[in-house]
Amino acid sequence: MESQSDTKKSLNLRSIGGKMVKPLKILLINTKSKAGFILLVSLIIFGILGQFFTPYNPNRYEFTGGLGPSYAHLLGTTIYGQDVFSQLFYGAAPTLMVGFAVGIIGTSISIIVGISAGFASERVNAFITGLINIFLIIPGVLLIMLFGSFFLGIHQSLGYLPTILILIITGWAFGARTFRSITLSIAKRDFILSSVLIGESRLSIIFRQIIRAIFPVIISNFFFTAMYGTMGLTFVEYLGVGNLLQINWGTMLYWAINNEAYLTGMWWWILPPSFMISILMFSFILLNFGMDEIGNPSLRRFDSKKSKKNKKINDDLNVNTEN
C-alpha cells in the first residue's frame, strides 16, 4: 500500500504542469532548482546578517590602505583603508534587493500585459504585441547610461529607486511576450472552452486556470528578470553612473577597477565581489533552468524521450483504481 501511494506520488511529480504543487515545494522538486534555491537562501541570509553584524563600519576609511587578508581583515582592506569583508557583507542586501524588486515588479507587469494580450480580442492583442515589441528593442543598459550621464551632468546621481525603475521599464517585455504566446495556445484548449461554456468569466478563467497552468513559467521568468536586475545594477555601478557612495557589489567593482586593483595585485579587492555576483547569477540561472524543466517536460531528464514516450508510460502505468 505504502509503495503504491509512493508510485502515485512520483507519477504526480512527473506530470507536474499536471498537479499543482505548493509554490515553495515546486522549487525543491528538481535537482537544479534545489541547488539554486539553497544557494539563493544562503545569499539572502548573508545579506540580512550583513545589515547588522559587519566587523567594521564599511563606510569608514580608518585602516591602513592596501592590507592583504589577515585575521583582523578577512579580505584585506581597500586602497582607501576600508575593510573589504565588511563592504562585501554590507553590500549584499542592496544588490539582492534590486534584483528581487526588478524581478517581482517586472514579472507582475509581464503577467498582466502578456495574459491580457493572449486572452483579449484580436485587435487588442495586435496592439499590445506592438507595444511589447517596442519595449523589447529598447537597450536597457544604454538607456541607463544615458540617464546616468544626464544626472551626472547636473551633478546628481542615480539612486536605487531610479535604477530599479529603469530596469523594470526595460526588462518586463521579454516575459510579457512569453506569457502572451503561452496564453494564446492555452486559451484554445478544450478545458478553457469548457469553462467558457459553463459560464465562467474571463477574469475567473485567467486567475483560476491560466495562471495556474503557467505557474512554473512565471517562477522561471521571475528568476530571469531578477537576474537581469542584478546584472543591470552591476553594470550601472561598474560604469560609474550610479551613486558611488552607496555600497553594493557593483560599486565595489567600480572602485577596485578604477584603482587598477588587478594591476597592483590586490586580488582581495576585486575577486570577492566578482565571485559573489557570479554565485548570485548562478543561483538565478539554476532556478530558471530548473523551472523550465518542470514547465516543459521535454527538457526533463527522466522523460527526455519525447512526449510520445511519456504518453506511453502513462498508458501502461495507467494508475486508476475502480472501486
Partner: peptide
C-alpha cells in the same frame, strides 16, 4: 466491470 489493471499493484 472495473477498469484495467494498475501495474504497480
Amino acid at each position: 466491470k472495473g477498469s484495467t489493471i494498475d501495474f504497480t499493484s
